[in-house]
Amino acid sequence: MIARLLAQIGRPVLAVLAAFGRVTLFGADTLRHMVTPPFYGREFAIALLQIGWFSLPVVGLTAFFTGGALALQIYSGGARFSAEAVVPQIVAIGMARELGPVLGGLMVAARVASSIAAEIGTMKVTEQIDALVTLSTHPMKYLTVPRVLAATLAVPLLVAVGDSIGISGGWLVGITKLGFNSATYLKNTTDFLEFWDVGSGLVKGAVFGFIVALMGCYFGMNSGRGAQGVGAATKAAVVAASVMILAANYVLTGMFFTS
């Protein structure tokens, strides 16, 4: 009875640990291929465009509405202890440190991890990955490295743009609905925002970008057969990337802001 119960607990724990080990090895393999030639510049440029440029609208809109909603929340919450004036500072710090990178990362995870997993998974089930091998081209170098590198570089830029748009959203709500003076709002934002508030968000963005592309590639490369296999790989990539972003965010926040 107890042995069976332990087995029932142990089996999924072992499965999760094994999966974590496989992902870690995949990540290490990706890093190893990143620093050894050949490099596929064209594939990197395409991935940069797909992951970075085409994610701008969704990240921008998310940041804009989040910045606006944050301003409203801080204003109404702050009113309870006469702290309505801190809206610009808290919006700026909240967007730069936390909401910009986390929401940006999650939006990119939804958009990019799914598309990478679906694309590579389809390539696997239609034997395109095997074809790459027979054409003396390593799939890790040709498919994984360009995407992971592009996401690691592009997501911090998206976060930076998202921070700016989010703060602008807060500013717009502040001056149109909350009665703030525009110049004062902007002065408070710039005076209280420190370099590391923004820098830490960009570092988080790079880590989240790495996670998103790695999960997309890992689940795509390990996709099961047929449409069902590709569908399952796509879903798993988005779920894993999202959970790992939130977990990594907690770890990084602890590292950056607790002494």
């Binding site: 390539m123 239609t126 034997e127 395109q128 095997d130 074809a131 091998v133 027979t134 003396s136």
Partner: peptide, 14 residues
């Protein structure tokens, strides 16, 4: 592998 060429069942075109 450079000594081989292969035609895949479904074409496997990129």
């Amino acid at each position: 592998l450079a000594r081989f060429g292969m035609l895949f069942q479904g074409g496997a075109l990129f």
